[in-house]
Amino acid sequence: MAVTIQNDYLQATIVEKGAELTSLKANGIEYIWQADPAFWGRHAPILFPFVGRLKNDQYTYKGQSYPMNQHGFARNAVFALIEHSAEKAILELASNEETKKIYPFDFRFMVSYEVWGEGLRIRFEVENTGQEEMIFALGGHPAFNVPLEEGLKFEDHYFAFSPQKTRVKIPLEGPFANLDQKTLGQTNTSIKITRNLFANDALIYETKGLNTFTIASEDSVHRVTVAYNHIPYVGLWSPYPKEAPFVCIEPWWGFADTVDSSGKLEEKAGMNRLAPEQKFKTQFSITVN
């Protein structure tokens, strides 16, 4: 089932599977990638309770081993639509017998979409409904059509960053993070979007405070911006070497296993911890023009 929210400028469509944003339209333009499986069969999946890949697609917790696919299970789960108005939709996923087989925590996970002006606000709320500390990661993975309009090429676009400053870059070795090889990424200036930019998979940066990441072109008035405050990481990705006509800007509260990961959830880097009966709330926005 799909639900639509809209105002005079913007229209967004969300489906119950994965609580995934499948369309974002304004100015007669579709900004969200339309999931052609020849390149990548998703639009904007939500990553929970893991971001990235785990070694051997599994982890251990309190000595017990659990299987877990890349980016967790929420992107394939069916959420319940619990609120829907003209400009807002809220969807919910709660732990159940099936989730407990692969993730031994009790939780309630709510995703809210709301249109405002030229933007879409996405809110996440994770509630620990169990009796022990909950360990989790969380992420957005929206893919945006590039080029932004007909007549332009993929390479006619660039990333713009605000604030313009260097950010710590986390390199990947295969699908795993190498924290010992962190460098300074030159996000103090714009970066031309090319295929080779993604030759080593996603570009991952540590982010602090208020950040905006924009895809734009000097040959177009149209652009798309992801903005947030106090989210620790962002991934920029397009599937190399495929010549896929989209680019992702991904706010993350966590990342993949490290190259030296023990596989123990209790020791996994980048994870969030939530006490019983407590809630974790965060948000990011997408604006288009």
Score class of each variant (00 low, 15 high):
195 R>P: 04
50 F>T: 06
194 T>S: 11
289 N>P: 05
188 N>E: 10
96 N>K: 09
56 N>W: 03
68 M>L: 05
206 E>Q: 15
178 N>R: 00
48 F>Y: 13
235 G>T: 02
145 N>Y: 03
282 T>E: 03
138 L>F: 08
166 T>N: 11
231 I>M: 04
127 E>G: 03
73 F>W: 09
208 K>Q: 11
16 E>R: 05
98 E>G: 01
254 G>L: 10
35 A>H: 11
48 F>P: 05
73 F>P: 00
72 G>Y: 13
271 M>V: 14
167 R>V: 05
161 F>D: 07
59 Y>C: 02
25 K>N: 14
6 Q>K: 15
74 A>C: 11
18 G>Y: 04
101 K>N: 07
188 N>T: 03
187 T>M: 01
17 K>A: 10
255 F>W: 07
70 Q>N: 07
83 E>K: 15
212 T>H: 06
130 G>E: 10
68 M>N: 07
220 S>R: 09
93 L>W: 12
214 T>S: 12
21 L>H: 14
271 M>A: 14
3 V>T: 13
47 L>I: 04
216 A>I: 02
264 K>C: 00
265 L>T: 00
261 S>N: 03
224 V>Y: 10
176 F>A: 07
276 P>W: 03
17 K>Q: 15
49 P>S: 00
183 T>C: 05
65 S>T: 15
154 F>D: 03
85 S>D: 06
276 P>Q: 12
209 G>F: 09
186 Q>H: 12
185 G>N: 04
216 A>D: 01
106 D>W: 02
254 G>D: 01
116 W>K: 15
184 L>M: 14
117 G>K: 15
134 M>Y: 06
22 T>C: 09
213 F>Q: 09
221 V>T: 15
40 W>F: 12
190 S>N: 13
30 E>P: 12
6 Q>V: 12
177 A>T: 14
38 A>G: 08
208 K>Y: 01
180 D>F: 05
127 E>F: 03
15 V>D: 09
11 Q>M: 14
225 T>I: 13
231 I>T: 07
215 I>T: 01
95 S>W: 08
254 G>R: 11
188 N>L: 01
47 L>Q: 00
105 F>V: 05
256 A>I: 00
289 N>A: 14
12 A>G: 04
62 K>Y: 11
149 E>L: 10
36 D>S: 08
228 Y>M: 03
62 K>I: 07
182 K>H: 08
79 F>E: 04
182 K>C: 14
20 E>G: 03
251 P>K: 12
13 T>F: 03
104 P>N: 01
36 D>W: 01
167 R>S: 09
216 A>V: 06
160 A>F: 09
235 G>W: 08
96 N>M: 05
186 Q>C: 08
